[in-house]
Amino acid sequence: MRAYARLVARADGRGGTVLAELRGETPLLLRQTPGSGRAVTVYVVGGAAGPLAGDDLRLEIDVGPGAAVRVHTVAASVALPGRPDVVSRMAVRAVVHDGGALHWLPEQLVAAAGCAHLAESRVELAAGARLTWRDEVICGRYGEAPGGAVVHTRVDYDGRPLLRQSLAVGPGAPGWAGPAVLGGAPATGSLLVVDPSIPHETAAVEGTLARLPLAGGPATLWTATAADAHTLRDHLDVEVEPLLTKVE
């Protein structure tokens, strides 16, 4: 299946946010849900199983100056095998203008056995934009070895490279489960927080959770490996909740 969805958010001039555009198609449907505060909340509702190899899904997000958006998904996305010799692809392209805020907080990506999935995100932040960006990968369903999945994230801040990372798991990624990459942990994820108003932090580590201040802008990357999806979410949630309640 191929699907294209687009979300455009603008400040409403009264301290809130309106959706100037919200459209999608199966299996990439967007639904606004009632919320309070300055941000609008949008859920990505999967209209079909998958993604299956061969699917090509694209989502564009544009957050205007002073607008704020939270994006969630209703369920984990389970990458599954499909047509042979092709990949499933989920491409997200987001632009956040000065004073805008995007909180991308989807549920996990589960790389099921035999899948071939590519998640590609490209985010451009203007100076003064804020971002919360969570990526979580679960390597296989319960007791299962994963297929191939690559999560590629590119973020620019004020025209400078801020974060480039491409995490590959599965049979096509040498050593991915070994002690240099995931050390046998079936769950891994990161949370990128870009916020010019937050004071510069130092690096810190606790167990397999690290706080990493980035070089290219006012940003911190939290990165973690965990024994399961819940532990992983606990690691990353500790950091995200205060930010969301404080700011929006």
Binding site: P161, S166, P179, L182, G183, S190, A204
Partner: peptide, 21 residues
Amino acid sequence: PERLPAAAAPLADIHAEAHAT
């Protein structure tokens, strides 16, 4: 340059920060 490989290793980052302390 922006399209050069960016292969990430979470434990390399986590180990490096632990080691630095």
